[in-house]
Write a protein that binds this DNA or RNA. Structure first.
Length: 596
DNA sequence: GCCGTTTTCGGCCCGACTGTTTTCAGTCG
């Protein structure tokens, strides 16, 4: 929604500048427009395959590592998978005018509140259309009234079950975001998995879904269960402590409502189908669709029970066996987003993804000198105990808004402290650094004279997140021109579920980082995970090294590095793409290169 | 709306569960 409004904003800017000036339209804007087209067409009752084509195009555009604007021509758009002549023309129109006539026409025909209704569980395009046609329902509030007045019961397709589901959904809507950070799902996912594994008759339990793919946020949990005959899945679930109720219960499939409000979908499959079920329920949907089409072309049929030639199962017990039968190597779950992984697998070009063990150090660590909770020495010893070879202390600079930051004097004292500590740490190095604030005008909050004395200068935005895109981009580009800057930290400023990424022309930032050169941080705090996966993939393609950083404020927060690794893997990063996967000597060379 | 080693037209991934429509449509993943 915010994005769409932003297109409007750009449109105004364009008209002020004159007709010849093209508004800056990002891939995300195009994807959002296509998503909206798909929903409005679906509500209208249009051909479902046409709807699907828009959805697919949105996904393709959203996953492109480069801005569409760089591709320029309609022919180049047309060459993208899932984009034909028509959609290529629509991309062209959006890029040049900032608007889409077809979308504007649709918006005039379909009340905007109906799109919101589509998000409610139990409401698809058919029922939303029926609500509008039968009861003039135009949004959630109308639906609430129709429910309470009893008018809904007169409508075909809205029996007591559906009405109960809708009442529940409207009540739940007030309860906050549907997706939550990956890390907040972990305790529930793991305890459910472990207690089911311990249940008698159960032979195998795996968590699948977006949780297994390591997405930054998780909606529902998906679990694949194998058990001996006679095991009653629903009865088993009702005995689990974390399970509040069952929203659906069949012999092979159950949906449990957990105490934290999450849903867990469980599927019971025979052991010979464990691999195919795991592929199936790990997804993503688009990865699966592509696998099934691949199966079809080989005159095979793929479903959650296996890969079949006629009625004969030819694979399915393990994932590896299944991919092999489709002529592919096993594909890591983090890559299964239909962003080119199947094509890469086919050509033997899957990246060897970075792992936690590849990290040699951590370049963003706080201490009690600013807002951290542990001393310099404690943070250093904790990192050494984890097997890291170096850390960079990057406490905040002092300025308005950050109370406990360091000024030049404080930083100078910390430099001395680090020198003396380094004498006592055998085989471990503490690098001198800072997380210096990027001020509203793009200057840095500390003088160059003190920054010159540091090994690592990490710079970040901590305020003025809502500047218009042109100003925000200019601000960051100016910061990147500072001769001492090494790493741009948490580039988008997003906080999952709390703060949207700031409006920033990330392609320009990436190009500037590459040209300078300097590095970009993938902040591993579970609520940040900033950069996101697509930005990481883009950095890799552009050859910009990524610093996977814990931003630890306490000894135990080095654990967050695992979240960063997960995100990095989703962004196709290998060891070679990661700045702090380099040994100290090589790291120092990289840092020296990034100083003008 | 896209796409092509069965195809430029006629397909488009596949199955489970729910509710209600007494034989299946709608939704979901």
């Amino acid at each position: 929604m915010a994005r769409v409004a932003r297109i409007g904003h750009r449109k105004e800017q364009a008209s002020r500048r004159g007709a010849e000036a093209a508004p800056a339209v990002h891939n995300e804007d195009v994807a959002t427009a296509f998503d909206e087209m798909a929903e409005l067409l679906a509500i209208q009752g249009d051909n479902p395959f046409r709807v699907r084509a828009y959805q697919r195009a949105a996904l393709v555009v959203r996953s492109l590592p480069r801005p569409l604007a760089e591709l320029r021509s309609k022919e180049a758009f047309d060459a993208l998978p899932g984009i034909g002549a028509d959609l290529a023309g629509k991309i062209d129109e959006l890029l040049h005018t900032g608007k889409l006539r077809a979308l504007e026409q649709l918006r005039r025909r379909v009340p905007p509140g109906l799109r919101e209704l589509l998000k409610l569980p139990g409401l698809g395009p058919v029922r939303v259309r029926a609500l509008h046609a039968g009861l003039r329902v135009k949004g959630a509030e109308d639906l609430r009234r129709a429910l309470s007045s009893g008018r809904l019961s007169k409508l075909r397709g809205f029996g007591p079950g559906v009405r109960r589901q809708l009442e529940q959904a409207l009540a739940n809507r007030a309860r906050g975001p549907a997706r939550r950070p990956w890390s907040s799902a972990t305790p529930y996912a793991e305890s459910l998995r472990d207690s089911l594994r311990a249940a008698s008759g159960v032979t195998q339990v795996e968590v699948a879904g977006s949780y297994r793919r390591g997405r930054d946020t998780v909606g529902d949990l998906d679990l694949v269960v194998c058990a001996r005959p006679g095991v009653d899945l629903a009865a088993l679930l009702r005995r689990q402590g974390d399970v509040q109720s069952l929203a659906a219960a069949g012999p092979t499939r159950c949906t449990a409502v957990l105490r934290n409000g999450m849903h867990a979908d469980l599927r019971l499959v025979p052991a010979e189908s464990a691999g195919s079920a795991l592929v199936y329920f790990t997804g993503s949907r688009d990865h699966n669709i592509k696998l099934r089409r691949r199966a079809q072309k080989r005159r095979l049929k793929l479903n959650e029970y296996g890969l079949f030639r006629g009625r004969k199962r030819i694979a399915g017990r393990t994932e590896r066996e299944l991919y092999a039968a489709l002529g592919l190597p096993w594909i890591p779950p983090e890559l299964r987003e239909d962003r080119g992984e199947i094509e890469a697998a086919e050509r033997g070009r899957l990246p060897k993804l970075v792992g936690l063990d590849d990290l040699q150090g951590d370049l963003h660590v706080h201490t009690t000198a600013s807002d951290g909770q542990a001393s310099l020495e404690s943070m250093a010893r904790a990192a050494k105990a984890l097997g890291l070879a170096y850390i960079a202390i990057a406490d905040h600079s002092r300025h308005l808004g950050i109370v406990h930051g360091l000024d030049a004097g404080g930083l100078s004292r910390q430099i001395d402290e680090i020198d003396s500590l380094n004498g006592q740490l055998d085989g471990f190095t503490v690098l001198k650094g800072v997380e210096v604030d990027i001020l509203a005008d793009g200057s840095l909050a500390l003088p160059e004279s003190i920054l010159r004395r540091l090994d690592v200068v990490v710079a970040a935005v901590h305020g003025h997140f809502d500047l218009p895109e042109s100003k925000q981009t200019a601000r960051i580009l100016r910061a990147l021109e500072h001769p001492c800057l090494n790493i741009l930290a948490h580039p988008s400023g997003r906080l999952l579920g709390e703060r949207e990424p700031c409006a920033l022309d990330f392609a320009k930032v990436m190009a500037a980082a590459r040209a300078r050169p300097c590095y970009l941080e993938l902040n591993a705090q579970p609520a940040r995970l900033d950069m996101d996966d697509v930005m990481c993939q883009s950095a890799r393609e552009q050859g910009v090294l990524v610093s996977i950083a814990s931003d630890a404020h306490a000894e135990n927060q080095y654990d967050d590095l695992a979240h960063g690794i997960r995100q990095a893997r989703r962004g196709w990063l290998t060891r070679a793409d990661v700045l702090n996967a380099r040994p100290l000597k090589e790291l120092r060379r990289c840092l020296a290169r990034a100083r003008l």
